[in-house]
Amino acid sequence: MTGFFTYATKHWGRMLELLLQHLEIVGIVLGISICFAIPIGYLLTHSKIASAFVIGLFSVLYAVPSLAMFAILLRFTGLGMKTAVIAISIYAQYILLRSVTAGFSSVESSVLEASRGMGLGKAEILFRIQFPLAAPVFLSGIRIATIASVGLAAIASTIHSGGIGDLLFEGINNLYPVKIVWGVILSSGLAFALNFGLGKAERYLTKRAHP
């Protein structure tokens, strides 16, 4: 039991470093995925066929087990964070595309008709009407994608991407339970913290969209 706490006092530096690495991966993944998902999702709302096709394509990719995905990509992009980011972005993209299209669809058609008829331009409608109203759904997708990414990034440490997974694997390889416990606490803690923060943002945006 004491080993549990002494480990932390001795190695908190490294634990912090791994935590930040983990956050870095999740951050980059979400950053890239959101930048793609919002424009692509917006375009997809204009064509049911394109939407079904693209989301269908990603749903197939989403079904591929993550470890397998990492392994397959290894061949092309090597070991390390880059491969992890690419692979996890694919999973995040599926989640985000679905919530972006759902978000845009959640805006009532009467609101859109009124704004068109009033003479608002497409850009005005997008930024002043659609975004504020769709934002809660976007954020719900972002939250889910973030938590998924935290879990996937832990697995990615097997392809040398760094992050808290390192702690877990070292724990099991070296038969060092304390590391396992800290790994579980840190990775779960990160997931809970991000969920809490993003949940708050989601609630805030929901209130702004429907006061």
């Binding site: 938590i147 879990g151 877990l168 339970p177 416990v181 579980v184 969920n195």
Partner: peptide
């Protein structure tokens, strides 16, 4: 909902101290 958020790798490893591999 909380259980769902725990990374799968963490869940797999958490039982090791108790149940082994």
């Amino acid at each position: 909902s909380a259980l769902k958020m725990i990374p799968s790798l963490a869940l797999l490893m958490v039982f090791i101290p108790i149940l082994g591999v």
